[in-house]
Simulated scan of single mutants.
Amino acid sequence: MPKITPRNHKLSDHDFLKLSKVESKPRARGKLLILHQLSQNKSLEGIGKDFGYHPQSIGIIRKNYWLYGLKSIYDKPGRGRKSHLAEEDIEAFKQAIVEAQQQRGGGRLTATDIARIAKEDFNAAYTPKGIYGLLDRIGMSWVSARSKHPRVDPEAISQFKKLHKPCQAGHP
């Protein structure tokens, strides 16, 4: 005898097509489109053929929606490789990068410098190449503005700009 799944959530509760148009995560968007097809009373076999899934997988998506609602379309934490930097250290890490750049006085931090901060201050081992992915995940850009030399003289720059006016178009 087949196991009966309690249906706490109905396929008529949401407009899945509308939700899929504003969903940013591709896997969740695909599940919303599958749920839309299910709400239109399409067969598991037909949906599976259209989306390239086995019908049993479509049934699992439906069952998970019945049990858990919209939160079932998102991947559970634990998928993929874990970050070496603890979640609670992210804000402090960002602040440490900003402070290190300000203390530098000129030039810019390199990936090697940031990897050293991660290792020494947060016990998070990253290679310089791996730092770029970490910075992207925490919302920081590795691209910085043009750096200033530590011995730059703003007064000399100002004087130079006053004395040497830029050429007008067409005039030497």
Rank of each mutant, 00 (worst) to 15 (best):
residue 68 Y to H: 13
residue 54 H to F: 02
residue 72 S to P: 05
residue 57 S to C: 08
residue 73 I to N: 02
residue 72 S to T: 10
residue 82 K to E: 14
residue 68 Y to D: 13
residue 85 L to P: 12
residue 65 Y to A: 03
residue 54 H to Q: 12
residue 81 R to C: 06
residue 74 Y to A: 01
residue 81 R to E: 08
residue 81 R to A: 12
residue 69 G to W: 02
residue 76 K to S: 10
residue 71 K to M: 09
residue 72 S to H: 06
residue 66 W to K: 00
residue 82 K to N: 09
residue 52 G to N: 11
residue 52 G to V: 07
residue 66 W to V: 00
residue 74 Y to C: 04
residue 90 I to A: 06
residue 85 L to Q: 06
residue 71 K to C: 06
residue 60 I to R: 15
residue 57 S to E: 12
residue 54 H to E: 12
residue 72 S to D: 07
residue 78 G to D: 04
residue 67 L to I: 15
residue 59 G to L: 08
residue 81 R to M: 09
residue 80 G to C: 10
residue 73 I to P: 06
residue 73 I to C: 05
residue 92 A to K: 15
residue 80 G to Y: 06
residue 80 G to T: 08
residue 55 P to E: 12
residue 84 H to W: 01
residue 70 L to A: 01
residue 91 E to T: 12
residue 56 Q to I: 07
residue 80 G to K: 05
residue 92 A to S: 12
residue 59 G to S: 12
residue 93 F to Y: 08
residue 80 G to R: 07
residue 89 D to L: 01
residue 70 L to E: 02
residue 62 R to Y: 02
residue 85 L to Y: 10
residue 79 R to P: 03
residue 59 G to P: 06
residue 76 K to T: 08
residue 83 S to D: 06
residue 50 D to F: 02
residue 62 R to T: 03
residue 46 G to L: 11
residue 90 I to C: 09
residue 79 R to D: 09
residue 59 G to E: 10
residue 51 F to R: 14
residue 53 Y to G: 11
residue 70 L to K: 00
residue 83 S to I: 01
residue 91 E to K: 10
residue 65 Y to P: 00
residue 78 G to E: 08
residue 56 Q to C: 04
residue 53 Y to D: 11
residue 89 D to H: 15
residue 79 R to W: 10
residue 86 A to F: 02
residue 77 P to F: 00
residue 55 P to V: 03
residue 47 I to G: 07
residue 56 Q to A: 13
residue 50 D to S: 15
residue 83 S to T: 11
residue 65 Y to R: 00
residue 91 E to V: 14
residue 59 G to T: 04
residue 50 D to R: 05
residue 65 Y to S: 01
residue 87 E to P: 01
residue 69 G to A: 08
residue 69 G to K: 09
residue 61 I to F: 12
residue 80 G to I: 04
residue 95 Q to D: 10
residue 48 G to R: 03
residue 55 P to S: 09
residue 68 Y to T: 07
residue 53 Y to S: 09
residue 57 S to I: 11
residue 93 F to N: 00
residue 79 R to M: 10
residue 85 L to T: 14
residue 50 D to P: 02
residue 77 P to I: 01
residue 75 D to S: 13
